[in-house]
Design a protein around this nucleic acid. Structure first.
Lengths: 111, 111
DNA sequence: CAAACATATACCCATATCGGCATACGTCAA
DNA sequence: TTGACGTATGCCGATATGGGTATATGTTTG
């Protein structure tokens, strides 16, 4: 047994830079596979494969129009990531506050 | 050439569930490797390896105390993820609003 | 200095991943 | 219906990944 981890969840889907690029490209408008291929400059099969991963974790949805498939983002699927990361938001704010405090300290010492 | 993608960035580091568990375990307090091994129930080498990945992308920092190494999170390194995901926050809110609107519609229709 | 302890590293195996190419599948047009 | 088009899938090769075991490295204690 080996490699138990790489489950197909949103975290993994988004770990691949190209897939983030795809999501970004779909952020404002629906696009066909061909569109994405042209915009992002990757191979058509690669695009289809990445889209499949994104689809399987619910990050994109498809609509069939003639022989084309129009993809769009489903931002909902990003919420688990957002929620997990947000738990740490306070920590980096605290640290900023700490830095601010030190700066304030130095400033006072100057005068 | 193949597999150009898997760069060692925060997105990838966090894609592994165990590494998220490690970060969560370190969220409130500094811990030694042995602590983590005990708390999370994984092998010691595995813990060290995951910690190394986390360290290389800046998600944790170390402090050496005697023969132990105390790890702690550096939430800062999560900001790129937070920022990227946050760009989509509005989209899922919009969608919630749409659902709300439909529900409102149905409610009115009932009365 | 030797032995116990804490952690990191090296190595191996199994498997997942990604890109590239060829091809299958479904749809539209002539 | 046949052929072009748009997209998905299958297969391959190269490589990265994660767990497991053994071991190296550094530190404390006796």
């Amino acid at each position: 047994m080996a490699r138990a981890a790489t489950t197909a969840d949103a975290f993994n889907a988004v770990a691949e830079p190209l897939r983030r690029d795809i999501l970004d490209a779909l952020a404002d408008s629906e696009r066909s596979v061909g569109d994405l291929v042209e915009v992002l400059g990757l191979g058509q099969p690669q695009a289809s494969k990445h889209l499949r991963v994104l689809r399987e974790v619910g990050l994109v949805e498809v609509r069939e129009v003639g022989r084309r498939r129009l993809y769009r983002t489903n931002a909902q699927a990003l919420r688990p990531i957002h929620e997990w990361v947000s738990r740490y938001e306070q920590q980096w704010n605290e640290r900023f506050d700490a830095v601010d405090a030190v700066l304030e300290e130095l400033k006072e010492r100057e005068s």
